[in-house]
Design a protein around this nucleic acid. Structure first.
Lengths: 110, 110
DNA sequence: GTTTTTAATCGTAACATTGCGATTAAATAA
DNA sequence: TTATTTAATCGCAATGTTACGATTAAAAAC
């Protein structure tokens, strides 16, 4: 059915999967890495750097912005993007809670 | 076109996005959390716990297994799953490299 | 050997994602 | 005002994902 049944999962599980989905495409990973390197970066620069068409980059930026991971500043005809530092930190806390769980000493597969 | 153009991205970017994609569905997050809690867990227990149909859980388990994040041990007619500790740690290193980048002090949006 | 149990696989319907050409919107420059 | 520049949005084709009923496979119990 292509749609996750979000109502059967916890808020935490849904939140983790939403952030993870944002990182689930190499173009968005590349965009974020670029914004860490050159903060802020114009949409056009990202198009050049990453090599996808302008509407495609714009769409990826929209998703990242929707999740609050980046913000964009209009400067004349350009838009300058950068990492939303505060929200990035919040996201990291949520992801770390999931990733840094204690590994059980002994499992069935030991 | 629905398919990421992997050849235009770095191996690192592709690897990050593959792991992220694994966490990009709440059911897989729930499965992994359950395996952290009760290691190891039988496929049937996961079906009961999570509430999706058996073929659906089996499919999610297959993806997690393909990425090396879990392993399954056949015990009679059952299969006992658990976190692949070593690979989980490796994955965490890769994800941390991406998530823990230094935030620039000043961006265009400051 | 037959039945039961457990999980993988198959097939397919419903839906989501990705990519981009074409267009639009909005600011700037001429 | 009329280009020009830059990026968002629209529309659509191609592909991927998710879910599950039906079936199969394999081991265990009887």
């Amino acid at each position: 059915m292509g749609l996750a049944k979000t109502e059967m999962f916890t808020d935490e599980q849904n939140e983790i999967s939403l952030f993870a989905k944002a990182f689930g495409h190499p173009a968005r990973v590349a965009i974020l890495q670029q914004l860490f390197k050159i903060d802020g970066c114009y949409c056009g620069d990202l198009v050049t750097e990453i090599g996808l068409a302008q509407p495609t980059i714009s769409q990826h930026l929209k998703e990242l912005k929707y999740l609050g991971l980046i913000k964009g500043n209009v400067e004349g005809t350009s838009v300058c993007y950068c990492i939303h530092a505060e929200n990035w930190t919040k996201m990291k806390v949520i992801m770390a809670q999931f990733l840094d769980q204690d590994l059980p000493k002994e499992g069935c597969c030991s």
